[in-house]
Structure formats: C-alpha cells, structure tokens
Design a protein around this nucleic acid. Structure first.
Length: 259
DNA sequence: GTCCAGGGGTATC
DNA sequence: GATACCCATGGA
C-alpha cells in the first residue's frame, strides 16, 4: 500500500457530504468506484493509505492540490462558515469525472442519496464492463435504463447520452462558469441545479452554488430569515460568498443534513 | 405559477 | 405493514 501525508483533510467528511455516490465502507477505509477506477483508501490521522490508483490521480480526485488555506481564510470572513470549517474539519470538494458526475446528478432529481447510489450501481452493472462505469454513448437502451429504477429520469439519461461527447466535456474546461452552465443546461434533464453540481464537483468551478431543498432551508434559516425563491437564494449565495461560494455551499449542505 | 414524472427513505401509527 | 409525505428537479 502506498501513502500520502495530508493536512486539513478528512476523507470521511469529504465522502459523506453527498458529492460522490459510488463508494462504500471496506475494512478500516473505503472502496471508491469512479469512472474506470476502483481503489481503496483509508485515513490514519493525517496519513492516507491507498491502493489501486496512482498517487497523482488520487491527490487530484480528493482535492488535495487545492489552496485550501486560502479558501478557508476567504470564506471565514462569514462567522457561520468559519464555525463550519471547525465543525466539519477537512471537508473538501472533490474533482470527479464529468460524465459520471453528470449521470449521477441527472439521477438525483427529486430523489435521495441512497436511491441515487442504487441507480448508479445498477447502471454500472447493466451497462458497464467488469465494474467500470459505462462510457459516453453506452447508455443506449431506454428499457434497460428503466430497469435501473431511474423512472422518469430514464429518458433524460437516454437523450443526454446521445448528445454528449468527449469533446463536449473537454471544451467546458476552458469556458467561464456562466458559459459552461449555459452549455450544460441544453442537455435534457439538466437545469440550473444539476449544472451547478457538475460545474462544482467535476470542473471545480467554485463560483457554482447549487440550491436544493436543504440549501433553501439552511439559507432561509441562517441568512434570509424569510421564504425566498431558489433562484434568489442562488444569486444571493454567489454574491455573498464570491469566488468560493460552492465551498460554502458544501459545508452548509452537509451540516444541515447531518444535524 | 402549477403540476406531474419512479421509487426508496422516513415518520407515525 | 400500511400509509402518507418527502426528495441534490426539470419540463410541459
């Protein structure tokens, strides 16, 4: 087993914050399945011990190369967020494969995390090859998608699978947050919320501020103090927290769901 | 703005 | 174990 020394990182908080779906506990650590990879990681204090993935790739995936100090410092100007950085020490935003991330969040609409996990595991079983997540273009059977318990989302998955290409995902890298979001929203089953999740979790465009029912609740409780539309909360969040708004969002979301 | 589209989770009895 | 309501929503 290989190892990495980390600082300000919690594998548990990171994995359990609802960003990623195909992971499970194994021995004293976690089995993570993502894209073409299946690997094992465990954390002993500041040391990560792992196998099945290259060190560089794991560091990128877990967000270990981010300037976390700077992110924490900037967001801690807000007292609530400063407190959450202490309470949920080491929660980071990962960098996922765009395709799997997109499919996961299309499944997420009006659903819940255990069910999304089930959908993705079934999709991997039914369309992937030996435990590997299916490639772009391989979700080409509407009936089989329905067998993955995707329900009304099966059609979105089927259509998006036909439109998306490797180049489509590649070009979003070089685009601004706003432009990339416009492109993603063109896909069937992708609105503002899902586009924001993909931009945040797969492209690390930290301005993205996804607002679901939990975020609506926590923002109304802590900041707005009154009923506010999702659209206004999203604008408020980006304006209030600035270039790292998505990070603030992830702490607020995880905290509100846990407590 | 309202309504509807799987189906598992969760609370309550 | 039945039942009712909820949900990392988008689209008509």
């Amino acid at each position: 087993m290989k190892s990495i020394q980390t600082k300000d990182f919690s594998l548990k908080h990171t994995l359990e914050s609802g960003q990623l779906f195909r992971y499970s506990q194994e021995n004293n650590g976690w089995r993570i399945n993502h894209g073409k990879n299946s690997f094992y990681v465990e954390q002993n204090y500041d040391k990560l011990v792992f196998k099945g993935i290259k060190k560089e790739e794991l560091e990128e995936f877990l967000g270990l190369k981010q300037d976390f100090k700077k992110i924490k410092k900037e967001l801690s100007r807000d007292n609530c967020i400063a407190g959450l950085f202490e309470q949920l020490k080491g929660l980071r935003i990962m960098k996922q494969e765009p395709w799997e991330c997109l499919i996961g969040f299309i499944c997420s609409s009006a659903s819940n995390i255990p069910k999304i996990k089930m959908n993705l595991n079934l999709i991997t079983q039914n369309f992937g090859r030996n435990g590997r997540f299916p490639l772009i273009g391989e979700l080409n059977d509407i009936e089989l998608l329905k067998d993955c318990k995707a329900g009304f989302r099966a059609e979105y998955l089927f259509k998006t699978n036909k439109i998306a290409t490797e180049e489509f995902f590649k070009k979003l890298n070089d685009m601004s947050y706003e432009d990339a979001k416009k492109e993603l929203i063109k896909l069937p089953g992708v609105g503002e919320k899902i586009a924001d999740c993909v931009l945040l979790f797969a492209y690390n465009k930290f301005e993205a501020f996804p607002v679901d029912v939990w975020m609506k609740r926590v923002m109304e409780e802590l900041y707005l103090k009154k009923e506010t539309s999702v659209k206004k909360i999203s604008e408020f969040g980006r304006h209030k927290f600035g270039r790292y708004a998505g990070y603030a969002q992830q702490y607020l979301y995880h905290w509100r769901r846990k407590v």
